[in-house]
Every structure is written in C-alpha cells, then in structure tokens.
C-alpha cells in the first residue's frame, strides 16, 4: 500500500518497540550452526544479516507440535460439556524470508479451503508477519528461485527489502501493517517498486540451485513417473523418521489423540504433527497399510509437493525450495536430487 525508507537501526528499534508490547518472534542463532524463531527479549540480538533457514519454519508457530483442540467435562447432572480450545492471542513473526512467507501463504490456502480450520484461523488472523527479502542465497542447498518462491511477499503485513547502501525499503502491505508502523519516523518513498526492481536485478544469477526446466514442466515430469526406479533409489537409506515432513513449511498433516484425566470425568483432545513418511501413516482400523513401502511413501510426499496439491490449488509448487528437508535428513535424501532425477528420467524416456 505504501513504501518507506529507513535505516536498519530504525527497523531494529521498531521491532524492539513491538516486542515490548506483544510477543515478537525473530530468528535467533542457537546450537552449533542453527537458527530458530524465538521470542524477542530485551537482550535478544536482532540482525537481518545472513542466516540459514531455521530448523523449523515459522508456520509451525501457527500449528504447534501439540495443540489442544477441545476439552470436555461430564457434569454430575449427566450433561457433557465440550468446548473448543482456541488461541486468539496476538503475535508478530518478524524476519520471515520469502520461502517461509510462501509456506504460510500455502498453508493459508490449504487450511482455509472448504471447511476452515478454526484453530489455525484463530492464530493466523491474530498474527502479523514482517517479511525480509533475500538478496543472497542462504546456503548452497536452497532452490527457492527454481520453485518460484524467491520473490514471494504475499501474506506479509510489512515487507522489508535491504538496499545496496545499507538502508532498507519498507513496504506496508496491509491495514495491520499500517497499524504496526504507526508512529515510526520512516521516510515516505515514491519510487518503491522501481527500487525493488533494482534490487532484484542486482541479485546473483543463478540464485541457489536450479532445475533445467521450469515449475510447470517439473509438474509434468513428476506426474509421468509413477513406476520408476527413482523412488526406490532415494529410499535406500531412508529411516522413515518423518524429519523431512516435520521440518517442511508446507506439511501440515496431523494426528488426533484423546486423553482422559485421572478424575475420569474430564479430558481433552489434542492434535500433533504427523508425517506421511512414517510407516503407520496410512494404516486403517483393520490393520491394512495402504503405503507399507517407504518408496511409496516417498512418492506420495514428492507428488504431494509437485503434483497433487499444485493441481488442486493452482498456486504453483508446494515446495518452497528452502532446503530444510534435505539439510536435516540424516540419511542425506534431498528432494532436489529426486526432482532432478525425475526430470532427467523424463528426458531419457
């Protein structure tokens, strides 16, 4: 809606100000070489410099690993009361990279489609997103440009693009963004779009890993390969541990479990992340497993990202190219390699 210019220090002060009023999550370095979205405290370091994608994508702040869906209580008069458990608290997630914005944008599509997911909606609609454009690849594993997520900014309330001179261009994209920016001393900027184009033009080429064909052609190649030795090849080392699903910004499958308190009259129902790579994901009541074989599960995962969901929703690849799954796979299986093999397989046949 409007463009502004500010120094990085302005922006850092602004975020600190926001954090004094609301929970603000920002990428923080931790462990040996990892980052995570953590709540900004008074002594938190805020830096927009280089970072590799966080262990878990920010969308997981909106779909916690374990969340209560409802609680119930049987009253002494025999009536059972059931109430949904909803988190409508306000939060800001800042420093969200385009790949992760695309992830949230896609999850919005999936969970709002048809019958909306009330628990997600309650969190999402009470969350402000402050995006931060990438000007250099996070590391050698990303392929965001190849799956069209490098320039994604939809869904951000404020989107920040770093400029060559060290200052930043701020794009206020929503009413909520305007509210967050109220009282800042940013300079209005008339040629915002042109400045953005300039930044994009000066970005390195190629940006991260690339595919020899475009996204639409990848879909065709993936759709063509049902029976292919490629599926077997890439699960030889698979542990079926589900890591690739659990760290994915576009995975949202869940399991539901009930618990009864020891008073035997009250309890709750929770949902937890599930993963289609886990061996028992497609087991039905009678014990039949519709995908007992890791290769079939891998095929399902890849096709979900590059065929099924793109077809159903029409918003491009449902893989944002962040590289988390490949980076964190203990068996060194990388969806990039699988797609590349599928593309080349198509060439041969």
């Amino acid at each position: 809606m409007s463009y502004h210019l500010a120094t990085q220090q302005n922006v850092i002060n602004w975020i600190r100000g926001l954090a004094s009023e609301n929970p603000v999550y920002f990428p923080e370095k931790y462990g040996h070489a990892s980052y995570r979205f953590a709540k900004v405290e008074a002594d938190s370091e805020i830096q927009f410099e280089h970072y590799t994608p966080t262990v878990l994508p920010p969308v997981k702040l909106l779909i916690p690993a374990r969340e209560e869906l409802l609680s119930f209580r049987k009253h002494s008069d025999g009536k059972t009361e059931i109430n949904p458990t909803l988190d409508e608290s306000f939060r800001v997630i800042a420093g969200v990279r385009p790949c992760d914005l695309k992830g949230i944008f896609l999850i919005d599509l999936f969970l709002k489609e048809g019958v909306a997911d009330a628990h997600y909606l309650a969190r999402r609609e009470n969350t402000a997103l402050i995006g931060w454009a990438c000007t250099a690849p996070c590391d050698s594993r990303v392929f965001c440009a190849a799956v069209d997520s490098l320039h994604h900014s939809e869904g951000a309330d404020v989107f920040i693009t770093p400029l060559k001179n060290g200052d930043v261009l701020l794009e206020i994209k929503t009413r909520l963004g305007e509210k967050l920016a109220a009282g800042t001393d940013w300079q209005p900027c008339d040629d915002g779009p042109a400045k953005k184009v300039g930044v994009v033009a000066s970005m390195q080429e190629p940006f991260g890993r690339t595919f020899p064909v475009g996204v639409q052609d990848i879909f065709k190649k993936v759709a063509k390969n049902w029976k292919s030795p490629i599926w077997d090849k890439h699960v030889e080392r698979c542990f079926s541990c589900g890591t690739c699903n659990l760290v994915c910004p576009t995975c949202y499958c869940f399991d539901v479990n009930d618990d009864m308190n020891l008073d035997v009259t009250s309890g709750n129902r929770t949902r937890t992340w599930d993963a289609c790579m886990l061996p028992h994901f497609a087991v039905v009541g009678g014990g039949h497993n519709f995908r007992p074989d890791p290769a079939a599960r891998q095929r399902h995962r890849v096709k979900r990202k590059f065929e099924y969901l793109p077809e159903k929703f029409g918003h491009g690849a449902v893989c944002v190219g962040c590289g988390r799954c490949g980076r964190q796979c203990t068996a060194k299986i990388d969806i990039y390699d699988i797609i590349l093999d599928l593309i080349n397989e198509g060439e041969r046949s």
């Binding site: 931790y30 462990g31 040996h32 070489a33 990892s34 995570r36 262990v55 878990l56 997981k60 690993a65 374990r66 542990f239 079926s240 541990c241 589900g242 890591t243 659990l246 760290v247 937890t272 992340w273 993963a275 886990l278 061996p279 028992h280 964190q328 203990t330 068996a331």
Partner: peptide
C-alpha cells in the same frame, strides 16, 4: 506409536545431533 526419536526431536525444534558433528541412535 512406533516412531523414531527424531519425530519428537523435531517437534521440540532441536538442532540435529549430526549438525553438532556427533552421531546418534535416534533414527
């Protein structure tokens, strides 16, 4: 559930042990 330790490790947002240069029986 017959799930690897990795499942809960990811749910807890842990940095993978391998990232620290160590090995793990988790998988």
């Amino acid at each position: 559930p017959p799930d690897a330790v990795c499942v809960e490790c990811k749910k807890n947002g842990n940095e993978c042990v391998l990232e620290r240069g160590e090995t793990c029986m988790g998988p």
